[in-house]
Design a protein around this nucleic acid. Sequence first.
DNA 1: CGGCCAGTTGAGTGTGGTCAATCGTTGTGG
DNA 2: CCACAACGATTGACCACACTCAACTGGCCG
Lengths: 228, 228
Amino acid sequence: MLGLMAPAENVARDLDFSYRPAPVEGWPQLGTVQHIPAREDIFFDGDEARNVFEVLDGIVCAYRILPDGERHIVSFYFPGDVIGNCNLGTYPYSAQALTPVRVRRIPRSVLERYMAQRPELAQRFLRLAALELAATRDHMLCLAAKSAESKIAAFLLALSRRNAELGEDPNQIKLPMTRLDIADYLGLTIETVSRTLSKFRRNGLIDLPRATLVVLLDRKGLAALADS
Amino acid sequence: MLGLMAPAENVARDLDFSYRPAPVEGWPQLGTVQHIPAREDIFFDGDEARNVFEVLDGIVCAYRILPDGERHIVSFYFPGDVIGNCNLGTYPYSAQALTPVRVRRIPRSVLERYMAQRPELAQRFLRLAALELAATRDHMLCLAAKSAESKIAAFLLALSRRNAELGEDPNQIKLPMTRLDIADYLGLTIETVSRTLSKFRRNGLIDLPRATLVVLLDRKGLAALADS
DNA sequence: CGGCCAGTTGAGTGTGGTCAATCGTTGTGG
DNA sequence: CCACAACGATTGACCACACTCAACTGGCCG
């Protein structure tokens, strides 16, 4: 048994945006709904973590500004995801709406009162933290990957997987983020992202009808690049 | 208030090996002590996570083998650290002793029984998970950093901080890991690690009496390199 | 129509990877 | 005690990939 088991199905091996525990009944009643325009910050790195946010519509990113002024995007959040589940007092990153966004803001105080009554909610949040850790670890491995090609291939496949999970076309990827966002997420420059996508198109791996739409033509080829 | 607060003291901004919550009274009685020779694996990526391990002596690393055969070191663990605190069923990485190691093996079943009786133990493990997430995030940012110099400077300063915390000389760093281990941790090659350390020595930032001993001579200079 | 911005493409450079030779330490056996 | 092997670390030469700087394109909106 020891050491010879295949990796479990539920542990993702590649970059993945699908880390979302199943929702809990009764949860949606909590908190108040807020609308946030594109490119507006929701909270800041270092702020007291008073609220948790559930994304209802639109895309949110978590980012950090490094000492040298560079921005690094830690994570993207899609509808259904929960942001700011932080039990260390302060947020470890800033959060910004990439598109117009609808979120449900839930004060931690309210949440904690509820969790005392509903252990399955507490369970969900524990699981949420574990999944966020797993996602961060995968992102880390992606950053450690050598080539820009493998980073971007992995990124596209992760977006595709998320599409499939939401019941959308896994080969039609509508990019809600700019090239700069992708670059800051993958530790590349905007030019390299652009060049690599163009290269993928020349090689017949993808099509790029518009800058914001990627059509996957050769998943096998992309997968091969992704883990290289 | 919003967005204008300084980052909290307890959230590390740089690479750090000091993420360890305070120990809990009564904890040491649990589990059985095991001796593990250097370079022997303790558990494997994908194994059912039946045990949690507390490092008593020696250094342990957590690593993953990527699809292309590359090894990536996820984390180093020092005496007092806890490994394998995983509530997703299987270990998300393998663990290997880098030096001869003494660990305390604690079955999760035992742990969970204890936690039911002692809520402060459960609290400690929640905090442990949160700190591991923070450490992983910092490691990720370090990997996203552009230059080899800044990665290695940050790495040395992290080891130094850990030394200081253990009451040892923060400027005398005994490296328990090989150049390859460091390279796999920072996403570099063994040659680049070696070259960069040599460069630091030429520039008077460090001394290298032996391959396994680094003496920090210019912390300011290293810190400047670390966040660049 | 013109301005603006995101994205693309090009040319040149430099950092870090690759391959290979050498050094230094440690440990083993004659 | 020395010779030698084995291994990790260092150094050098070369090269490729991604960054930098810069020009240009295309879409969108006033």
